[in-house]
């Protein structure tokens, strides 16, 4: 039998994204966010998840999309991230427009990310796949949330600013 893995798919700005289900700790409904002002732009704030402080990342802001107000369909996907430096696992919530489905994607259906033609930098994706006539972009969640990447993004912002000037 062909090797396949289960993925959770979700929508951001009407596009389908997926992450491996093994990375997902839980999915929760929108809950009050305590905003953090002096922080990374895509870091929306923090929530209290049963006594734990979990940072929430807004994927729209991360992908430089239009910011939308959260409504009752907004969900937070709590994912486990392994910090490569310390080896600790920590949880991060990602805010997405809506959660869609859980799908099987076999290895052979997973294509390498094309370098161009996508809104995201290809580094953020592990690949793309076609499921039920929909294109799904598979996010490399560790890559998106590592510290190096955080610094990377800041540099991009700086670059942008300097170009704008």
């Amino acid at each position: 039998m062909e090797k396949s893995e289960k993925y959770l798919t979700f929508k951001i700005e009407n596009e389908l994204y997926a992450i491996p289900i093994t990375k997902v700790r839980e999915i929760i409904r929108y809950t009050t966010i305590t905003p953090v002002h002096d922080a990374l732009s895509f870091l929306k704030g923090v929530i209290n998840l049963r006594g734990k402080i979990i940072p929430i990342i807004d994927m729209r802001l991360k992908f430089n999309l239009k910011e939308s107000t959260y409504n009752d369909r907004t969900v937070f996907i709590i994912v486990d991230i392994v910090n490569r430096e310390s080896g600790y696992i920590y949880s991060v919530g990602i805010a997405v427009d809506s959660v869609n489905d859980v799908v099987d994607i076999s290895e052979s259906n997973l294509e390498r990310t094309p370098e161009i033609g996508l809104k995201l930098r290809s580094g953020y994706l592990t690949g793309i796949a076609q499921v039920n006539n929909n294109m799904i972009m598979i996010l490399n969640i560790d890559k998106i949330l590592t510290k190096e990447d955080v610094i990377d993004v800041n540099e991009i912002i700086k670059e942008k600013e300097s170009i704008e000037k």
């Binding site: 002096d38 990374l40 870091l43 920590y90 949330l145 510290k147 955080v150």
Partner: peptide
């Protein structure tokens, strides 16, 4: 409580 690595670049907070 630790605020996690996303706050590592923010020296103003020692935690939450």
């Amino acid at each position: 409580k630790s605020l996690g690595i996303l706050f590592a670049s923010n020296p103003v907070f020692s935690g939450g």
